[in-house]
């Protein structure tokens, strides 16, 4: 909803991705000059510059991509939330010599870190323990069982969140992006900056950026940093299911395919001005 609305606004105001300029080719000299001035003057300079270089008048001067200490701004922004959980933690007898809190912290990190909890997100690490209930020892087991209330740091960007990651590769399905600790991010072809095409020879997506001098091919190479908006998320329950007797043997193939699926996938979009490779919008 938001995107559509924004697109309409952009069209009405007369600046779209094509008009807000991103092409690094033209800028280097001025950009260096700008970097030396304070931000206030940068804006003024940017205005004059944009007029003198046949930027379209209606495009807002502030859209001029001036860099602030270009190259220094490596943004890999991620989104974390705190999630409140309870769990019963089993502490084996050989851990009794340690402090209960330490033992529980270790157990919780062992159990949850680097795991995706369904509809919650990717667990990173324990934040704190808010409450410990009484510990019990059950017959036949020497371990103690403690109900723990705790808070966990979880990677779960909300929708519309803007993240910066690294391109892991391109395929016909779109651009695959990695955040380093989280790899299951895909930007489908229809969400790329338009017009986009897939270069079969180099296996890379290209934004055919149009200027008045002709089209520039902006390649989305592997390893480049890319800023994208999170537009959708999918959780897949990958927990093992029991054998289904009713289904015929042909289902085994599909089950195997499902096994490989990522439990938590983010769908990104870069079809807005400001999104895409960082080098498109700053000049480096």
């Amino acid at each position: 909803m938001r995107t559509k609305h924004q697109e309409r606004m952009l069209l009405e105001h007369g600046y779209t991705a094509q008009k807000t300029h991103s092409n690094p080719l033209i800028l280097p000299y001025f950009v260096q000059m700008l970097a030396f001035s304070s931000l206030g003057t940068q804006l003024e300079l940017a205005t004059t510059f944009s007029n003198s270089y046949h930027y379209r008048k209606e495009s807002p001067p502030a859209d001029f991509p001036f860099p602030f200490s270009s190259g220094a701004l490596v943004l890999l922004v991620t989104m974390f939330v705190l999630v409140e959980m309870t769990d019963t933690v089993r502490i084996p007898p050989w851990q009794f010599e340690r402090k209960l809190n330490d033992a529980i912290t270790e157990e919780l990190n062992k159990k949850l870190a680097n795991k995706v909890v369904y509809n919650v997100g990717l667990c990173i690490c324990l934040y704190d323990i808010t409450k410990l209930e009484d510990s019990y020892i059950f017959p036949g087991d020497g371990a103690s069982h403690t109900k723990v209330h705790f808070r966990y740091v979880v990677f779960h960007p909300f929708l519309d969140e803007i993240l910066v990651g690294e391109i892991k590769g391109c395929s016909l399905e779109g651009v695959h992006v990695s955040l380093g600790f989280f790899d299951d991010i895909i930007i489908p072809p229809e969400s790329l900056q338009q017009p986009a095409k897939f270069d079969e020879a180099e296996q890379v997506w290209v934004w055919e950026y149009e200027t008045e001098e002709g089209a520039h091919d902006l390649y989305m190479d592997r390893g480049e940093e890319i800023r994208f908006r999170v537009v959708d998320e999918t959780f897949i329950d990958t927990s093992p299911t029991g054998p289904s007797s009713s289904e015929p043997s042909t289902s085994s193939a599909t089950e195997e395919v499902q096994k490989k699926e990522a439990p938590y996938t983010l769908v990104g979009s870069i079809s807005e001005p400001g999104l895409g490779l960082l080098s498109w919008w700053t000049n480096s």
Binding site: T78, V83, D87, V117, I124
Partner: peptide, 21 residues
């Protein structure tokens, strides 16, 4: 295991950084 509140608080990068450090 039980999840009581999926969004107790938002953390900014700085907080996560400090915790991990």
């Amino acid at each position: 295991m039980e999840v009581k509140d999926v969004n107790t608080a938002l953390l900014n990068d700085f907080e996560v950084y400090q915790l991990l450090m």
